[in-house]
Design a protein around this nucleic acid. Structure first.
Length: 296
DNA sequence: CATGCGTGGGC
DNA sequence: TGCCCAAGCAT
């Protein structure tokens, strides 16, 4: 017998699957009765937003718009308003646009094909693979920040992955992916869950990890991160913060608001004007006939 | 390929 | 308390 590890039979797989079976959170979009649309909505909302903040918005969203066609029938501004404070509200516009494309080009059904998914607005490699896998049981490499961190540590022995996905990372993930579709799908969600709950970016709980004995990073003594400095995310005073303030006014208003309502939430007039223009350009706001501003 | 894009929670 | 982070995408 060869000592080589055959594809789909890494010693990492079974312990992670067992751990997931016992420790997985009960999330609405993971339940057997969850629709593909529910999975898709969750994936959009979870792009850079924590699970706990997504939960209530996801629930009300699915109650209001149980199918893509239901959302597509509404003005985009309603999607932006319902998005609430999840952040990055352009995702709401893209989800609306994706729902419209699904209604018009896919008979109202969320596609199962990776390339069809990738062609939808707001859907990149991760989200296409995630929807194909978690909504339709297809077999794809699902490479999000959690998976990248877990595999980086367990396999490569580094605390944090590189800025962008490398070919080597993709090869590692592909080699670990179990052969049969159902197991591949469970493995993918299980590694993500392990990264979210145990193999966290900060203060990983190695004592609770099912593969600690196999982990290259742990075995090496958890060496400190040694790569290029990771960029710090500034916020105070940025256009992002300004845009957020302006959009919050529109979201919380019944209809159009006079522009002096916007003046009150940001002092720097030049920056305020620039940010309003960018919101208009993005389609997150529109000017009304009387000179006011509103959600589209 | 680096950068811009929201928001709130935890330490 | 400031600082870092959280299931990315588009350009």
């Amino acid at each position: 017998m060869s000592s080589q590890t055959a594809p789909g039979s890494s010693p990492l797989v079974a312990p992670v699957l067992e751990w997931y079976d016992e420790h997985a959170r009960d999330l609405p979009w993971r339940r057997p009765e969850a629709s593909a649309w529910s999975v898709m909505v969750s994936e959009f909302m979870l792009q850079q937003t924590p699970v706990n903040r997504v939960l209530p918005v996801h629930e009300t969203w699915l109650e209001r718009w149980p199918t893509p066609a239901d959302l597509a029938a509404e003005p985009t501004g309603e999607a932006v308003r319902a998005w609430g404070r999840l952040g990055y509200p352009r995702r709401a516009l893209r989800l609306h646009a994706a729902a419209t494309a699904i209604r018009d080009e896919h008979g109202g059904e969320v596609p199962a094909d990776y390339d069809a998914l990738l062609a939808l607005p707001g859907v990149g490699d991760y989200t296409a693979a995630a929807i194909a896998t978690f909504a339709h049981g297809r077999r794809h490499v699902v490479l999000d920040t959690n998976v990248r961190r877990v595999l980086g540590r367990a396999v490569s022995g580094v605390e944090f992955p590189a800025r962008s996905v490398t070919r080597a990372e993709r090869d590692v993930a592909a080699a670990l992916l179990p052969d049969d579709e159902p197991t591949a799908a469970t493995w993918s969600v299980a590694v993500m869950e392990l990264g979210a709950l145990v193999c966290t970016a900060d203060r990983p709980r190695c004592d609770a990890c099912p593969v600690v004995a196999l982990c290259a990073w742990h075995t090496a003594g958890r060496p400190a991160y040694d790569g290029p400095p990771r960029p710090v995310q500034t916020y105070a005073g940025t256009d992002r913060q300004c845009r957020g303030r302006l959009l919050a006014v529109l979201r919380d208003a019944e209809g159009a608001v006079p522009s002096d309502r916007l003046d009150a939430v940001w002092d720097d007039a030049a920056q305020r004007a620039r940010c309003l223009e960018s919101l208009l350009a993005d389609g997150l706001a529109v000017r009304t006939a009387d000179g006011g501003v509103a959600l589209p």
